[in-house]
């Protein structure tokens, strides 16, 4: 039996809305991933700790209450410090308050070290497809 790829999932910050989290958990599990779901109200360090403990290959961060920039800044550094610099970091949700140009938001989060940045309303299927693509690319790299 093939070993499942593990991903850490959670809602960062002080928001209790769990709908997207539950949906993504279900969809990722159905797509064959092993999901370590930290639920809501998750501090940065908990994401890193869970990734190390479970040897996960990706951290999927959701932020829903508009303070994503503050909550997410420094997460890549924490990963680096913990020795998992190469882990995939994805982020999505309502990353800023109100309507703003999304490409600016995406650039900002990419500069903060996120590999993928999703606009509000992104479907789980898109995230899964990206994850499979990025993981395949990595395994090819490691074979070279």
């Amino acid at each position: 039996m093939e070993k499942k790829v593990k991903v850490v999932l959670g809602v960062i910050g002080a928001d209790c809305h769990a709908v997207g989290n539950k949906i993504l958990d279900y969809a990722l599990t159905a797509a064959g991933f092993e999901v370590i779901n930290l639920g809501v109200l998750v501090p940065q360090q908990d994401f890193v700790n869970a990734a190390i403990e479970t040897d996960a290959q990706a951290i999927l961060v959701a932020s829903l209450y508009g303070h994503g920039e503050i909550d997410c800044r420094g997460l890549r550094d924490r990963c680096r410090e913990a020795g998992i610099d190469d882990i995939l970091l994805y982020v999505g949700g309502n990353l800023v308050v109100g309507k703003t140009d999304f490409s600016g938001v995406a650039n900002k989060f990419q500069d903060m070290g996120f590999d993928r940045v999703y606009a509000p309303g992104t479907l789980p299927g898109k995230v899964i497809a990206d994850l499979q693509e990025d993981l395949t690319a990595r395994s090819k790299e490691s074979l070279m």
Partner: peptide
Amino acid sequence: SFQMVIDDIYAIS
């Protein structure tokens, strides 16, 4: 399928 649940969540948008 579970896709229905997902679709319902996103329908309101």
